[in-house]
């Protein structure tokens, strides 16, 4: 079985216990306006071009089947990410994000260093994109990794309920994003309703898989007492909740958009001071921290 990923990052330290290898799966049903991994949105491979280092030699245009429509030395409209320009570029500043690999290949790659990471109390984390979009591939990879590898999932929670149920059984730890408890705000800033997400979140709260709620704290969007309180109320009493983590928005989230020749239009005031309140969680008997 094949899946699509855009990166395997080594030595991740904010994605679960210990040091971890994090697999970034490609494709996401959400369109969060603060997304810092824009190459994870589309399920299809995409060409990324670094703006620095281009000497204007024109080799990319020479080999591009759509060369005539290329603006400057960027990406032509209708680019299929065929990759011809990637190896033609003498500066190697072009690459294709998105690699199709089999579960066997991925598992074998992760196993190469599994002992090292296990020695640090760590393991493997699946992130994205949205892993739920490639649930069968992920589950097959987990099966191949075996029970000795500690596995964690980073998810938006937006996905098929059965797939999510299977994930809660298969993973050792789940890092679950809660972007907004208000459906209107959720639709406005992520493009989808939070109905399915909250349903999965409630399943998580009832179950016995250790989990963490994560709030990407976006200025003016969800840095409100109302949101914090709603999360605290949802999480209160959940037996397997480890803690709530707040991840304050940072302006560098926009760094990769230019590489995809996309405009970064976050739709909120990016430089507004962020309101953080951990006391609400403390009052509900929930551990919390800012990452």
């Amino acid at each position: 079985m094949n899946g699509s990923l855009f990166d395997i990052k080594e030595c991740a330290i904010h994605d679960g216990p210990g040091l971890r290898q994090t697999v970034f799966l490609k494709g996401c049903p959400l369109r969060c306006s603060w997304c810092h991994n824009p190459e994870g949105l589309s399920a299809r491979p995409e060409l990324m071009v670094s703006p620095n280092g281009c000497t204007g030699c024109g080799r990319c245009r020479e080999v591009c089947p759509l060369g005539g429509t290329m603006v400057g030395f960027g990406k032509p409209p209708g680019c299929t990410a065929c990759g011809l320009c990637v190896t033609a570029c003498p500066q190697r500043i072009r690459r294709v994000a998105g690699e199709t690999v089999s579960a066997e290949t991925l598992a074998a790659r992760l196993m190469e260093n599994a002992d090292y990471y296990a020695g640090t109390g760590g393991g493997v984390t699946f992130s994205g994109g949205e892993p739920l979009m490639q649930a069968d591939f992920v589950l097959e990879t987990l099966r191949l990794l075996g029970p000795a590898v500690h596995t964690a999932l980073e998810t938006s929670g937006y996905g098929d309920e059965n797939a999510f149920a299977a994930f809660t059984d298969a993973f050792n730890l789940i890092l679950f994003d809660l972007k907004s408890m208000d459906d209107d705000i959720h639709r406005r800033y992520t493009g989808v309703s939070n109905r399915l997400i909250l349903k999965n979140a409630r399943r998580l709260c009832r179950g016995n898989t250790p989990f963490i709620f994560r709030i990407p704290v976006i200025p003016g969007v969800n840095d409100t007492e109302a949101h914090y309180r709603a999360v605290a109320e949802l999480a209160q009493g959940a037996p397997s909740l480890l803690r709530v983590e707040l991840l304050p928005y940072h302006i560098t989230a926009g760094a990769k958009y230019a590489l995809l020749q996309k405009a970064y239009q976050p739709g909120f005031e990016t430089d507004r001071p962020i309101h953080i309140d951990l006391d609400i969680f403390t009052r509900h008997g929930i551990r919390s921290c800012v990452l």
Binding site: I13, H14, L19, Y116, G119, T120
Partner: peptide, 20 residues
């Protein structure tokens, strides 16, 4: 990478692993 105490401890693990 040094954002909080937990992260600092992980970097410490990384350092220790070089010695090991």
């Amino acid at each position: 990478l040094f954002r909080n105490e937990e992260a600092i401890q992980k970097v410490a693990v990384l350092v220790k692993s070089y010695m090991e």
